[in-house]
């Protein structure tokens, strides 16, 4: 996979594999994911339910619980392999060097503690600040994320805030220790569009101020187009396409990416008809052995029964599809249609 030559990467993931063990079965939720996050940039991971995008992000922070396990690959964060570091080192990293915000702000905030108490915790653990100093910093953080009258809000409980406000508190909490990498897992999916616009803009502005890198996990191609520099499209545990954001939207290569864009109803232009992708995502225990998209792909042929590798194309996209390899036979018709 191609990266900018002069740019330093804050995170490099290589062949990451995370599986869930149910009885005797191994469900490969993330199966050989490789990508880099350049410093100060935003990488979008886009995919539908079950594509493995959230599991990838949880793996980075080693937040995978039994029966799940990282079974292979490396996660290189500033020269350290996060799959190998001790749990106590991991605790130093979480919330301090790498932070995460989740979709549902209400379930991620503790309902019985005030906003201030929860923000102070981070300062206490990572910076050893006392109550007075911690509260002062908490108020500063709330102000930073645009919460009005932060000195009053700091003593309130999560239920007293609206959804948008809570997500801003989550962002304040995630940014409390000025992390170098922020993982945002569907940060605006539960919010109304006008509030979403505020939150996305806020993340963008804060990113520029702090200079952090962001991994934006989303199913929304609009959010990707507006916030990301690079995009990885995931399908069934694999990255099927990786490109910079302009290339991806202008010249999508993988049939799945093309299918996604064709099935998207747009508000900004008039469309005649949506062209859906046929069928459903295969169940994890019924994964095809070859290309995982083949059963739904309009171009699938005999060769697709073998698993394709992610290969670079001349246009700058990395694509996991036989069509873009010399082995592709144009004349052959789809075998999956019969």
């Amino acid at each position: 996979m191609k990266t900018e030559i002069n740019q330093e990467n804050i995170l490099e993931i290589n062949d990451l594999r995370t599986s869930f063990f149910v009885g005797k079965n191994e469900v490969k939720a993330v199966d050989g994911v490789t990508f880099q996050v350049p410093k100060g940039k935003t990488l979008g991971i886009v995919g539908e339910s079950g594509s493995g995008k959230s599991i990838t992000s949880l793996s980075i922070l080693r937040l995978i619980d039994e029966p799940g396990k990282i079974v292979g690959g490396s996660i290189n964060f500033k020269g350290e392999d996060l799959t190998k570091v001790s749990m106590s080192r991991m605790r130093q990293i979480r919330g301090n060097e790498i932070s995460m915000i989740f979709q549902e702000p209400m379930t991620s905030l503790n309902p019985v503690y005030t906003i201030g108490q929860q923000l102070r915790e981070a300062f206490k653990i990572h910076q050893g600040l006392g109550k007075k100093e911690g509260t002062k910093r908490a108020i500063e953080m709330l102000e930073l994320v645009g919460i009005p009258s932060p000195d009053k809000r700091v003593n309130q409980y999560p239920f007293e805030l609206s959804g948008g406000m809570r997500q801003r508190v989550m962002i304040a909490m995630a940014l409390a220790c000025k992390p170098e990498l922020l993982i945002a897992d569907e940060p605006t999916t539960a919010l109304d569009v006008t509030i979403q616009a505020q939150i996305l803009e806020l993340i963008k502005e804060l990113q520029e101020e702090i200079g952090m890198s962001v991994i934006m996990i989303t199913h929304d191609l609009g959010v990707v187009a507006e916030t990301c520099d690079y995009v990885a499209v995931m399908y069934a545990g694999n990255i099927v396409e990786y490109a910079d954001v302009e290339t991806l939207f202008e010249d999508p290569k993988h049939p799945y990416t093309v299918g996604l864009l064709n099935s998207l109803p747009r508000h900004d232009i008039e469309q005649d008809e949506l062209i859906p992708i046929k069928g459903n995502v295969p169940a994890p225990d019924e994964m095809p052995t070859g290309c995982r998209f083949a059963p739904r792909c309009p171009h699938a042929s005999e060769i697709c029964k073998t698993h394709p590798e992610l290969t670079e194309t001349k246009d700058g996209n990395d694509v996991r599809c036989w069509i873009y390899t010399p082995d592709w036979d144009k004349e052959e018709v789809s075998v999956y249609d019969k």
Partner: peptide, 23 residues
């Protein structure tokens, strides 16, 4: 404001966004 707030799935189209105050 509602229409301007929706992210456009086209990185070349930068919408002139109207931000609404509050909730």
């Amino acid at each position: 404001a509602l229409l301007s707030a929706i992210p456009v799935p086209d990185p070349k189209k930068k919408s002139n966004r109207i931000f609404l105050r509050g909730d």
